[in-house]
């Protein structure tokens, strides 16, 4: 078997891991509902009463939904496997740590893609038109990969308590939602606010969503896509390194 075929086989086994994650962790009703309700409530809490058109609100709703769904369970899958003592059997299979982590990321990515259909439908039903559907599809795919990788970083400490990882992720996730131009477009932010927004990957996805749905964006399209790609690669590499280091401490 050539090296390329072996890599392909490992990728196929990542998909097997992803399928397992979706069946065990993501198919639970509280997870699905949580993926929808938390962003919906947060969004409504900050948008009701504001004199803003629905067209201007849907990109933010899409941003927050994709972010919340893609980071919802990645922080807890590894601690869950540690707690339920299923990890050692997994590691002794002919797969690498990277294969396992990549599989966890794919599951989260698929969950994010499935959930994002809801805010898009809300937009379509209420008359919002998608100006650049292809760009939006690419942006959503990139964003789910990016946010899933971010979530994986939170699950790297070798704990067997999912709630610890969840708490750690909440400390980062919620501030990111507030600084990323979801509730207030970047153009309307103060300079310091825009500076803060620049460190959040969600900023660039929300900007892309505004571009695709409203036809306006703060950053050029290429910059949003490039920064999102850089964040994705960075988070994924860091998550894999951290997990490779911590995996054995989980046994």
């Amino acid at each position: 078997m050539t090296t390329n075929l072996v890599y392909l086989e490992q990728l196929r086994r990542s998909l097997v891991i992803a399928k397992k994650d979706l069946r065990i962790y993501y198919s639970k009703a509280p997870v699905v509902l949580g993926g929808l309700l938390i962003p919906a409530f947060l969004f409504l809490a900050f948008s009701i009463g504001k004199d803003v058109s629905l067209k201007a609100l849907v990109p933010g709703l899409l941003g927050i939904t994709v972010f919340a769904a893609s980071t919802s369970l990645t922080p807890v899958v590894a601690p869950w496997e540690t707690m339920s003592r299923t990890l050692e059997r997994l590691i002794s299979c002919p797969i690498s740590t990277s294969t396992i982590i990549f599989g966890d990321m794919l599951a989260s990515c698929m969950f994010g893609l499935a959930i994002c259909v809801i805010p898009i439908l809300v937009g379509v039903v209420t008359g919002v038109s998608i100006t650049y559907p292809l760009v939006l599809a690419v942006a959503i795919l990139l964003a789910t990969l990016c946010f899933s990788s971010l979530g994986l970083m939170f699950s790297s400490p070798p704990t067997g308590m999912p709630q610890s990882a969840q708490m750690l992720s909440a400390v980062v996730r919620f501030p990111l939602i507030f600084i990323s131009g979801i509730f207030t477009p970047l153009a309307e932010m103060a300079t310091w606010g825009r500076g803060l927004a620049a460190i959040s990957p969600l900023t660039y996805f929300t900007d892309l969503a505004r571009h695709c749905l409203e036809g306006i964006s703060y950053h050029p399209l290429w910059l949003d896509l490039l920064v999102l790609l850089i964040f994705t690669v960075l988070f994924l590499v860091v998550a894999m390194k951290l997990h490779e280091r911590s995996m054995l401490k989980r046994l």
């Binding site: 078997m1 050539t2 090296t3 072996v6 890599y7 490992q10 590691i91 740590t97 990277s98 294969t99």
Partner: peptide, 10 residues
């Protein structure tokens, strides 16, 4: 060598 260096448990 035919196995890849992809996995982390050498």
């Amino acid at each position: 060598c035919e196995d890849p260096g992809m996995h982390g448990h050498h």
